[in-house]
Structures are given as C-alpha cells and as structure tokens.
C-alpha cells in the first residue's frame, strides 16, 4: 500500500484555512501508520541499543520501584492493603500509574523530541504523541507479565474480569493522549510546560491511590476520589487484576466525561497551535 498515494492522487488543496474533519484526521493518521510504527520501534530500539542489559530495563525499573515502596510503605509505614499482599497491591497500581505518567511525560515532549522531522517532512502531526504511547504500551504489557509472576508467587487468584484490562488500557491511553495533545504544542513554545508537567504528575501520584488504597483514608474523604479520573482508572484496573471493589458509577461518569472533554480541548489546542509550532520549533 503506497502510503501517500491514496491521499494525494485526487486533487490536493493547500491553503491557509485547512479545516480537516475528525474522520479525515483519523484516516490520515492511519494512512501514515507505517511511519508512526517505525518511529515507535526506533524509540524502543534506540532506548535499549547501547545498554548492556537491554530490554531487561523494562522489567528492572518497575521491580526496583515496587521494592522501594514495599519496604517503605509496606514494611515501615504499614499501609494496610487488605487481603492482597502489599507488593502485589502496589505493583498493580504502579503498573498503570507508570504507564499513565510516562505517556503524559513523553507525549508532552514528543513535538520537541521529533522537531528534526517536523521541520523537514510532512506527516499528520497529531499522530506524533502516539509514537510514545505505542512504545510505552509495549512496556506496559511486559510489566503486566511481571505482575502475573508476582501474583503466582504470592498466591493471589486471577480474576475473570481481567478481560476488561485492554479496555482500561484504551481509556488510559485516551486520557493521556488528550493530555499530550494539550501540552505538547504548549511545551514546544514554552519549555516550562514540560517541567511543570513533571512536577505535577509526581504530585498527582500522591493524590491517587497508587501506593495506598482508598480505604487508607477516613471514609468521609472517599467521595473525593470519584473526581480524580486517575484514581478511578487505578481502582478499575485493580478490580480487573486482583478483584478489589469497583469504583462508583459517579466515578465512571466523571472519568468518561473528562476523557471526552479533554480530547475535544486537546484537538482544538493542537490545531490552533500546530502551525505556530512548526514555524518556531
């Protein structure tokens, strides 16, 4: 399938007010998919090519983080994680959290990181934040395998609702993609945005039930978590993986609404700033 042929064979109009429909944009990203996949593979390969341990780093990083949290919060602080052994509990949360925060971080930096291309060739730029998402989805599924090993080790039963996991991954991707659409062009114009996002996500981690369960806090604060979409994603994923309680329906409505609203805002911001970014990057 010649990538550009199907797009370019018909009359191709370039003017100052190109208004593309959402469907056209999706179709365009699909037509250029080989570039995005190639760029994602380039990122994955380049990341591990010069390291001795190579792909093992994907596994080492979450294990070490999990170990640190287990020692600090599971052993010293004694966070009560209910029936689930703390390492499994914290790992199931870290898994999704690291997935989300990396997506957001790399997505925000994606326009700057790929500036060498943006200036020299055309491809639908809205696909650029997807490159990092593709790469980290691969990492996510590798880390999921480690969780399975941990679950077997600690004798935690597998849940039938695990079949929802791909859906949860998809919702997480949408939310982080929306964030990247908003922040990537802003970051290309003012690099401060990337820095702020870095601190912001660290902060958000402690506001979300990653290293502690919601039950760790007094009951009259629990409703607050319904308005944190990341908390809902984390608890939803824990429900699917280790069978904790499902978030409330109010939490799901907030999550869905946030994802949709952010995607719309993201698309608007990205389109508004796209040409400025290209000229200034």
């Amino acid at each position: 399938m010649p990538v550009t042929k199907s797009l370019n064979v018909q009359k191709n109009v370039i003017d100052s007010s190109v208004r593309k429909s959402v469907f056209y944009q999706i179709k365009e990203i699909w037509l250029y998919r080989e570039i995005f996949i190639a760029l994602a593979f380039r990122d994955i390969k380049a990341r591990y090519k010069q390291s001795v341990l190579g792909l093992l780093w994907v596994i080492i990083q979450p294990i070490v983080t999990c170990l640190v949290f287990t020692i600090v919060f599971g052993y010293f602080v004694r966070v009560d994680s209910g029936d689930t052994p703390y390492p499994v509990f914290v790992f199931s949360g870290l898994l999704l959290w690291q997935f989300f925060s990396r997506n957001l971080g790399e997505g925000t930096g994606s326009l700057v990181a790929n500036s060498a291309f943006i200036n020299k060739i055309y491809f639908p730029r809205m696909g650029i934040p997807l490159i990092g998402l593709l790469a980290s989805t691969v990492d996510f599924f590798l880390a999921l395998v480690i969780l399975f090993v941990l679950m077997i080790w600690f004798g935690v039963a597998f849940q039938p609702q695990i079949i929802f996991a791909p859906l949860i991954v998809l919702v997480t991707l949408s939310l982080s993609y929306a964030g990247a659409l908003i922040f990537a062009p802003l970051n290309a114009i003012y690099r401060d945005v990337g820095m702020a996002i870095g601190y912001g996500t660290q902060f958000l981690m402690y506001l979300s039930p990653v290293i502690y369960p919601v039950s760790f806090l007094p009951e009259n604060y629990h409703w607050l978590f319904d308005f944190n979409p990341v908390a809902t994603l984390l608890d939803w994923m824990r429900w699917a993986l280790i069978g904790t309680t499902l978030p409330s329906s109010r939490a799901f409505i907030v999550l869905g609404a946030t994802a949709i609203v952010f995607l719309i805002i993201g698309r608007t911001v990205f389109r508004k700033l796209e040409s400025t970014v290209v000229d200034r990057i």
Partner: peptide
C-alpha cells in the same frame, strides 16, 4: 508545497503524489 508549513494566504492545487 510539501505541506510542512501552511501559507498565510493563497491557495495551491496539486495532483499526484509528492
């Protein structure tokens, strides 16, 4: 012409793969 940057005004019509 290669769609890398957008014009401020004016219009281009092209046919064929670029």
């Amino acid at each position: 012409l290669s769609k890398i940057t957008t014009p401020t005004s004016g219009r281009i019509t092209m046919s064929g793969r670029v």
